[in-house]
Design a protein around this nucleic acid. Sequence first.
DNA 1: GTCGTAGTTTGACATCTCTCGTAGTACGAG
DNA 2: CTCGTACTACGAGAGATGTCAAACTACGAC
Lengths: 118, 118
Amino acid sequence: MTDTATPGRALPHPEREQIRLESVLHALSDPMRLQIVRELAAREAELSCSQFELPVTKSTTTHHFRVLRESGVIRQVYRGTAKMNGLRRDDLDVLFPGLLDSLLAAAGLQAGRLGADG
Amino acid sequence: MTDTATPGRALPHPEREQIRLESVLHALSDPMRLQIVRELAAREAELSCSQFELPVTKSTTTHHFRVLRESGVIRQVYRGTAKMNGLRRDDLDVLFPGLLDSLLAAAGLQAGRLGADG
DNA sequence: GTCGTAGTTTGACATCTCTCGTAGTACGAG
DNA sequence: CTCGTACTACGAGAGATGTCAAACTACGAC
């Protein structure tokens, strides 16, 4: 938590206890969002929205990041004009032990099979 | 595989290699379907559609079972007038090792937290 | 203050999803 | 062949979803 977050622009996140498995699965069932989560996990760092090269417009990108945040998969913080995104690995690991890793492994295996960027 | 399946009423299933992670996650992101899969995993047996006491009509039940079958989560076979449903555990474990177990464990934990039938 | 960059908001549109009710098909029992 | 059971098919309707374009806000740099 480097304290560089921009004050006065808080974003609503579900508490850990409010995160629902169904919502997480729904969030990850979209290829675009699964890709985002995969990149976020690969580089173990927070990334701004614009660092993802997604084949959709900015409004659609905003939409996907919001779904991920509202389902509890990622945490978003404003840092100046950028919006940084980080996986909520700690919360997810407590709620659903091993799930995130299995999910990422599965996504990696499938990407390899399909000849994508695995 | 007791050979009691009714011939001439085959149902289309995706091959193992055709099963997509996104489709599986989408199938499991519905509470009704997640419940079905949980029951199917708990009793390690094939169950007919009508053995599930779901709070929806028969047509809706048919719909949910079809989504599960077409996503590759379950296998369906006619046995007389009944349609038996079984988890495709073997295929899923090969494709996405550990995923199904993490998913079931996560669903169990959440059901316990929520005071449902966990 | 002005400008540019980053992201949001709104409205629209096509598609999909979950649900239902009604009518229909497939099988086994008699 | 008739009947009952188990499930399907076919609409239909309410609502969610993914996408876009255009106009907007927030921040930093100058």
